[in-house]
Design a protein around this nucleic acid. Structure first.
Lengths: 200, 200
DNA sequence: CTCGTAGCTTAACGCTGTTAAGTGTTACGC
DNA sequence: GCGTAACACTTAACAGCGTTAAGCTACGAG
């Protein structure tokens, strides 16, 4: 565990920043401890002074990504009066975040579980805030009579999983080329949200 | 490109079978060309006589997985009279396939795109059959007046992406531990299908 | 001046995917 | 029957990987 002197935190921060940059620029598969170190002008082993191993470094980045996602989602839900419009805005913003930050998104939600098995499943605390945010929007909609009642957390997970499926398949380029991608994304969001709305 | 003599096909088949076995037994991260070869009693480089590289080997496995999935989905949709029940059955079977064959499923739908970038996106032909199967079930439902009309292929992609999201998050252990997994899966399938049904 | 230590490096281990070159066996034209 | 070509496979090697152990250097305190 690193101490918390200024110098320590400086290099730790630099490692995180460089890793994120390399991740976006060159992609996940080309990211190695040695490459990160080379870009920083340090030796590869220095990284181990601040992060237990490669997974721990990734995990720190995931945490940062969750924080970023939380901020954009929170911003997107402000200023709406209609709870349904607000819900739609949050969902659309989530999808946009995923598509605009593919490498980040993959790191956050798509790693092979085995690759992260050193970490307990409950470590994704910041992820919960994002789920709770969606759950809150759903609860508000239910209170207004526009959303079907139910366990808000199960509902939020369900809604989220539908959005995640859309983002994941687009990022992985698994959407059939005969299908228009924009139309698909629009339909995915509409159906995900729509399935929770009370029909009048 | 390997010739098609009998001996050739024998080892090719053995490589595929062993790889699948190792994948299930030890997981994706421990799968290496050398391990596969050791399990087979051959040298690692022999695999390159039958597969261009590791990705090509994985790709062949993906093709096999798509074929298996197609067979179970096809079987699951037979014997139903109500098109909606049939649609539900196909969706439930899809989710079950993913949860029962996690390693397979990950290989088929969740690899980092960069990891597979040597392959053109249109190579997933067998995957289309699965999409067309869902599209067919939706079209039948629409013909019976039980499913909302629309582009069947976009609808199928949307439905599929919702199911995929649920499977992917469960496999990646990203579902909040405070959420009951069974309830979540049930809700996910119900909402995915339900959003396409005509309300009476 | 000496000691401890903070911060970093070098060397090494065992692993990875992949290529180039080599080996032995088998089949065939003459 | 002999030379040759093709085939099926191996060995050796390269460059890179994550990670560990040990060592080095500079600096502040006593």
């Amino acid at each position: 565990m690193p101490k918390t002197t200024d110098a320590d935190l400086d290099l730790r921060r630099a490692i995180l920043d460089t890793t994120r940059t390399l991740l976006v620029r060159e992609g996940y598969s080309k990211l190695s401890m040695r490459r990160i170190a080379r870009a920083l002008g340090y030796s590869a082993t220095s990284i181990y002074l601040y992060f237990e191993n490669k997974d721990a470094l990734f995990h720190a980045l995931i945490d940062e990504g969750m924080e970023r996602l939380y901020r954009v989602l929170k911003a997107s839900q402000e200023g709406w009066t209609d709870p349904v419009e607000r819900l739609r805005a949050v969902c659309a913003r989530y999808v946009r975040f995923g598509l605009e930050n593919p490498e980040y998104y993959e790191l956050m939600f798509m790693p092979h579980p085995r690759h992260m098995e050193r970490y307990p499943a409950d470590k994704y605390r910041r992820a919960r805030r994002n789920l709770d945010l969606v759950a809150g929007a759903l609860a508000d909609g239910a209170a207004a009579g526009a959303v079907v009642p139910g366990d808000a957390r199960v509902q939020a997970s369900t809604l989220w999983s539908a959005l995640h499926g859309a983002v994941a398949l687009v990022l992985a380029q698994r959407i059939d080329i005969r299908v228009d991608q924009e139309a698909f994304l629009e339909a995915a969001i509409a159906h995900a949200v729509g399935s929770f709305l009370v029909r009048s």
